[in-house]
Protein backbone atom coordinates (compact mmCIF):
# COMPACT_ATOMS: atom_id res chain seq x y z
CA UNK A 1 0.00 0.00 0.00
CA UNK A 2 1.35 3.36 -0.97
CA UNK A 3 0.56 6.77 0.39
CA UNK A 4 1.01 10.18 -1.06
CA UNK A 5 3.93 12.13 0.35
CA UNK A 6 3.95 15.89 -0.15
CA UNK A 7 6.97 17.91 0.77
CA UNK A 8 8.92 21.00 -0.18
CA UNK A 9 12.10 20.14 -2.03
CA UNK A 10 14.56 22.88 -2.87
CA UNK A 11 11.81 25.43 -2.45
CA UNK A 12 9.36 23.64 -4.68
CA UNK A 13 6.24 21.73 -3.64
CA UNK A 14 6.63 18.13 -4.74
CA UNK A 15 4.65 15.00 -4.20
CA UNK A 16 5.01 11.34 -4.91
CA UNK A 17 3.90 7.93 -3.80
CA UNK A 18 5.69 5.86 -1.22
CA UNK A 19 5.18 2.59 0.55
CA UNK A 20 5.57 3.05 4.30
CA UNK A 21 8.90 1.29 4.18
CA UNK A 22 10.40 3.36 1.40
CA UNK A 23 13.52 5.22 2.42
CA UNK A 24 13.71 8.93 1.77
CA UNK A 25 16.73 8.44 -0.47
CA UNK A 26 14.80 6.12 -2.77
CA UNK A 27 11.87 8.49 -2.79
CA UNK A 28 14.11 11.37 -3.86
CA UNK A 29 15.93 9.33 -6.46
CA UNK A 30 13.20 7.14 -7.88
CA UNK A 31 9.98 9.08 -7.30
CA UNK A 32 11.21 12.66 -7.70
CA UNK A 33 14.09 11.79 -10.03
CA UNK A 34 16.55 13.80 -7.95
CA UNK A 35 19.46 11.48 -8.59
CA UNK A 36 22.14 13.79 -7.19
CA UNK A 37 21.62 12.14 -3.81
CA UNK A 38 23.60 8.92 -3.84
CA UNK A 39 23.75 5.60 -2.02
CA UNK A 40 27.04 4.02 -0.99
CA UNK A 41 26.36 1.65 1.89
CA UNK A 42 23.67 -0.24 3.79
CA UNK A 43 24.51 0.89 7.27
CA UNK A 44 24.44 4.67 7.44
CA UNK A 45 28.20 5.08 7.39
CA UNK A 46 29.02 6.66 4.07
CA UNK A 47 26.98 9.85 4.05
CA UNK A 48 26.58 9.87 0.26
CA UNK A 49 22.84 10.29 0.80
CA UNK A 50 23.13 13.35 3.04
CA UNK A 51 20.40 15.95 2.56
CA UNK A 52 19.07 18.71 4.77
CA UNK A 53 15.73 17.96 6.38
CA UNK A 54 14.17 21.07 7.89
CA UNK A 55 17.65 22.56 7.78
CA UNK A 56 19.41 19.71 9.52
CA UNK A 57 21.83 17.40 7.82
CA UNK A 58 20.56 13.84 7.84
CA UNK A 59 21.36 10.62 6.06
CA UNK A 60 18.37 10.09 3.82
CA UNK A 61 18.90 6.33 3.90
CA UNK A 62 18.03 6.45 7.60
CA UNK A 63 14.81 8.43 7.26
CA UNK A 64 11.57 7.08 5.85
CA UNK A 65 9.98 8.92 2.97
CA UNK A 66 6.73 9.16 4.93
CA UNK A 67 8.62 10.94 7.70
CA UNK A 68 9.36 13.78 5.30
CA UNK A 69 5.64 14.46 4.81
CA UNK A 70 5.07 18.22 4.99
CA UNK A 71 8.71 18.98 5.62
CA UNK A 72 11.46 20.82 3.81
CA UNK A 73 14.23 19.00 2.06
CA UNK A 74 17.33 20.50 0.47
CA UNK A 75 19.33 18.41 -1.96
CA UNK A 76 22.38 19.15 -4.08
CA UNK A 77 20.15 20.09 -7.00
CA UNK A 78 18.90 23.11 -5.08
CA UNK A 79 22.21 24.84 -4.46
CA UNK A 80 22.79 26.36 -7.84
CA UNK A 81 20.81 29.57 -8.22
CA UNK A 82 19.97 31.22 -11.49
CA UNK A 83 22.73 29.33 -13.23
CA UNK A 84 25.28 30.38 -10.66
CA UNK A 85 27.15 27.84 -8.58
CA UNK A 86 26.96 28.11 -4.81
CA UNK A 87 30.29 29.19 -3.26
CA UNK A 88 30.74 25.65 -1.96
CA UNK A 89 30.24 24.23 -5.42
CA UNK A 90 32.70 26.74 -6.83
CA UNK A 91 35.24 25.98 -4.15
CA UNK A 92 35.01 22.20 -4.54
CA UNK A 93 35.57 22.70 -8.24
CA UNK A 94 38.43 25.14 -8.02
CA UNK A 95 40.28 23.30 -5.25
CA UNK A 96 39.88 19.87 -6.80
CA UNK A 97 37.80 18.79 -3.82
CA UNK A 98 36.47 15.85 -5.76
CA UNK A 99 37.51 13.12 -8.13
CA UNK A 100 34.78 10.65 -9.00
CA UNK A 101 32.15 13.02 -7.66
CA UNK A 102 30.08 10.35 -6.01
CA UNK A 103 30.50 11.61 -2.44
CA UNK A 104 30.41 15.25 -3.52
CA UNK A 105 26.69 16.04 -3.10
CA UNK A 106 26.60 14.63 0.42
CA UNK A 107 29.91 16.23 1.25
CA UNK A 108 28.70 19.63 0.07
CA UNK A 109 25.47 19.37 2.08
CA UNK A 110 27.36 18.44 5.25
CA UNK A 111 29.64 21.39 4.60
CA UNK A 112 26.67 23.67 4.01
CA UNK A 113 25.18 22.61 7.33
CA UNK A 114 28.51 23.36 8.98
CA UNK A 115 28.92 26.79 7.42
CA UNK A 116 25.40 27.83 8.32
CA UNK A 117 26.17 27.07 11.96
CA UNK A 118 29.82 27.99 12.01
CA UNK A 119 30.73 30.44 9.25
CA UNK A 120 34.48 30.33 9.85
CA UNK A 121 35.42 26.84 10.99
CA UNK A 122 38.93 25.66 11.78
CA UNK A 123 40.48 22.73 9.94
CA UNK A 124 39.64 20.52 12.91
CA UNK A 125 36.03 21.68 12.90
CA UNK A 126 35.75 21.06 9.17
CA UNK A 127 37.15 17.56 9.59
CA UNK A 128 34.69 16.83 12.40
CA UNK A 129 31.79 18.18 10.40
CA UNK A 130 32.45 15.92 7.41
CA UNK A 131 33.44 12.82 9.36
CA UNK A 132 30.08 11.25 8.52
CA UNK A 133 30.84 11.47 4.81
CA UNK A 134 33.28 9.01 3.33
CA UNK A 135 35.29 10.13 0.35
CA UNK A 136 37.18 7.29 -1.27
CA UNK A 137 39.20 9.34 -3.75
CA UNK A 138 40.67 12.52 -2.35
CA UNK A 139 42.04 11.67 1.08
CA UNK A 140 40.02 14.71 2.22
CA UNK A 141 42.90 17.17 1.82
CA UNK A 142 41.34 19.19 -0.98
CA UNK A 143 37.86 18.88 0.47
CA UNK A 144 39.03 20.58 3.64
CA UNK A 145 40.72 23.27 1.52
CA UNK A 146 37.55 23.76 -0.48
CA UNK A 147 35.32 24.13 2.58
CA UNK A 148 37.72 26.65 4.06
CA UNK A 149 37.85 28.59 0.81
CA UNK A 150 34.07 28.57 0.59
CA UNK A 151 33.79 29.86 4.13
CA UNK A 152 36.08 32.75 3.26
CA UNK A 153 34.17 33.50 0.11
CA UNK A 154 30.84 33.34 1.90
CA UNK A 155 32.14 35.65 4.61
CA UNK A 156 32.82 38.34 2.05
CA UNK A 157 29.89 37.54 -0.17
CA UNK A 158 26.59 37.04 1.58
CA UNK A 159 25.04 33.75 0.59
CA UNK A 160 21.87 34.23 -1.33
CA UNK A 161 19.27 33.61 1.33
CA UNK A 162 18.10 30.06 1.06
CA UNK A 163 14.41 29.61 0.69
CA UNK A 164 14.73 26.62 2.97
CA UNK A 165 17.04 27.91 5.61
CA UNK A 166 15.69 27.42 9.07
CA UNK A 167 18.69 28.85 10.82
Amino acid sequence: MKRKVSLRVNGEEREGWAEDRMLLVHFLRDELNLTGTHIGCDTGHCGACTVLLDGKSVKSCMVLAVQAQGRKVETIEGLEREGKLHPLQEAFREHHGLQCGYCTPGMILSSLYLLRHNPSPSEEEIRRAISGNLCRCTGYVNIVKAVRAASERMATRVEAPSTEETG
Partner: peptide, 15 residues
Protein backbone atom coordinates in the same frame (compact mmCIF):
# COMPACT_ATOMS: atom_id res chain seq x y z
CA UNK B 1 39.62 22.65 -12.55
CA UNK B 2 38.20 19.52 -14.04
CA UNK B 3 35.46 19.75 -16.62
CA UNK B 4 33.61 16.96 -14.87
CA UNK B 5 33.41 18.92 -11.63
CA UNK B 6 30.57 21.12 -12.86
CA UNK B 7 28.15 18.23 -13.19
CA UNK B 8 29.51 16.49 -10.10
CA UNK B 9 29.11 19.48 -7.78
CA UNK B 10 25.58 20.19 -8.98
CA UNK B 11 24.19 16.68 -8.67
CA UNK B 12 24.05 16.15 -12.40
CA UNK B 13 26.57 13.38 -12.68
CA UNK B 14 25.02 10.34 -14.26
CA UNK B 15 26.11 7.20 -12.47
Amino acid sequence: PTKESVRFTTGHGSY
